Simulated assay, not measured.
Amino acid sequence: MTDPILKISNLTKRFGGNTAVSDINLEIQPQETVAIIGPNGAGKTTFYNMVSGRMTPTEGKIELEGQDITGLPPHKISRMGVSRSFQINNIFPEMTVQENVEVAVTAFHGHSRKLFNFASRNKAVQEEARELLAKLQILELADRRAEVISYGDKRLLEIAVVLATRPHLVLLDEPTAGMTPDETKRTTSLIRQLADTGEYTFLITEHDMDVVFGLADRILVMHRGENLFVGTPDEVKAHPEVRRAYLGEEEEEEASA
Rank of each mutant, 00 (worst) to 15 (best):
T2L: 10
D3G: 01
D3E: 15
D3P: 06
P4N: 10
L6C: 10
K7Q: 14
K7I: 02
S9K: 15
V21D: 04
N25I: 02
E27H: 07
T33R: 07
G38K: 05
G38C: 09
N40R: 09
G41P: 10
G41H: 06
A42I: 07
T45L: 05
T46R: 06
N49G: 03
N49F: 05
N49A: 02
V51E: 05
V51D: 04
S52D: 01
G53H: 03
T56I: 15
I62N: 11
E63Y: 03
G71A: 09
G71F: 13
H75T: 04
H75N: 11
I77K: 11
G81N: 05
N90M: 03
I91D: 07
F92W: 03
F92Q: 11
P93G: 14
E94I: 08
M95E: 13
T96D: 13
V101E: 09
E102H: 10
A104V: 12
F108G: 02
G110D: 11
R113Y: 07
K114H: 07
A119T: 09
R121C: 10
N122E: 05
K123S: 13
A124W: 05
Q126M: 10
Q126N: 13
E128L: 03
K135R: 09
K135Y: 00
L136A: 01
Q137M: 06
L139W: 00
L139C: 00
D143S: 13
R144E: 15
G152C: 02
D153A: 05
K154H: 08
I159F: 11
I159N: 04
A160I: 00
A164H: 14
L169Q: 10
V170Y: 08
D173P: 09
E174V: 12
P175G: 07
T176C: 14
E183S: 07
R186F: 04
R186M: 10
S189M: 01
Y200W: 11
F202T: 09
F202S: 05
E206I: 13
D210N: 04
L215G: 05
D217W: 00
I219L: 00
M222W: 12
H223L: 05
H223V: 06
H223P: 03
H223E: 15
H223K: 11
R224H: 10
G225Q: 12
L228C: 00
T232M: 00
D234C: 00
K237H: 02
A245M: 02
Y246E: 07
E250V: 15
E253L: 08
